[in-house]
Amino acid sequence: MELDMEQWLQQLQKWIHEVEEWVHQQPVEQLYAAFAVLLITFALFGFFRFLRRSKSNTIVLAGLTGSGKTVLYYQLRDGSPHQGTVTSMEPNDDTFVLHSELEKKGKLNPIHLVDVPGHSRLRPKLDEFLPHAAGVIFVVDSLDFLPNCRAATEYLYDILTKAIVVKRRIPILILCNKADKVTAHSKEFIKKQLEKEIDKLRTSRSAISTADLTSEFTLGVLGETFTFSHCRNKVAVAEASGLTGEISQVEQFVRELVKP
């Protein structure tokens, strides 16, 4: 064994000596050029790897149970609300071209859409998809908004303060669903109420920050009333109706993040 190691070291020294002799025989300009080409090659390789890694086509649907996430999922995929669907207990997860774009000519970039169940015990599944998300659509029931305002605010707060969301600046669309109903609250009203409730929530949570294990970042500007414009990531508010198929603002949000 010692003999084999000694032979291997002798062979290695021989190779190193041969490489040194070859380098000394080459013109300096040629060595510089070869080194420059090598550097450029590594730089381009790293750049293209970064581009492939950063271009995500994953859009995540989140929100409370009953907000209409699954109906929106099917509208985007099939152009149908699939009436009669029940509350999802497992994520709906598929990759497809938006149904409204199926008749368009040319190659279209498919989206990877994930509908995360809204039940409190199933929400941790959201963490499986956020690291790869290009954007999050947080669905709010604008018809029954007030009775669910506090619960919706807490869920949204938890998303907005997640480290992965803040660090990657993942855009979030607060989607006021069921906007076709006469008694539905407007997106302006919902936005103001959510901001007001988040302002209260961040105050109460900061008071017990040592015990608060869910919030990884603090929202807002110290000493100022909270607004979504204070968030590091872009937060927009829009309206839709999953049942009637009025989802143009949803599709616009998706296509801004996942280019056709």
Rank of each mutant, 00 (worst) to 15 (best):
R168N: 15
V166K: 12
G118I: 05
A133G: 11
Y155P: 00
D141Y: 06
I170L: 08
K192W: 02
D180E: 15
H185G: 06
F145V: 09
L156K: 03
A179H: 12
K125R: 15
T153D: 08
D141N: 14
K181V: 08
G118D: 05
R123T: 09
L146K: 06
K167H: 06
D158C: 08
E188P: 01
T183I: 03
G118W: 05
L146H: 02
D144Y: 09
S142P: 05
L146M: 04
K192Q: 14
D180Q: 13
A179Y: 02
P124N: 08
V136W: 02
L173W: 03
R168K: 15
S120I: 12
I164W: 00
Y157H: 15
A163F: 00
A151L: 12
C149S: 14
V139T: 12
R169N: 10
L156C: 01
E128W: 00
T183F: 01
S142E: 06
I174E: 02
L143C: 11
P171M: 06
K178W: 08
S186A: 07
P124A: 04
T183L: 10
L156Q: 02
H132A: 11
D115Q: 13
A133I: 10
K178M: 14
D141R: 11
D115R: 11
R123Q: 13
A163V: 02
K192T: 09
H185P: 04
V116Y: 04
K125N: 10
F138R: 07
K162N: 08
R121G: 03
K125P: 00
D144I: 01
L126P: 03
D115H: 13
E154Y: 07
H132N: 12
V140W: 02
L130F: 09
I190Q: 07
Y155W: 03
D158Y: 01
K167M: 04
T183M: 06
L122P: 03
F189P: 00
P147S: 10
I137G: 10
P131G: 07
G118F: 04
E154H: 13
D127K: 15
G118N: 03
G135P: 05
L160W: 04
H132Y: 10
D141L: 09
E188C: 01
D144E: 15
L126Y: 13
Y155I: 04
D144L: 11
R169P: 01
F189S: 01
I174M: 03
S120E: 14
R169A: 13
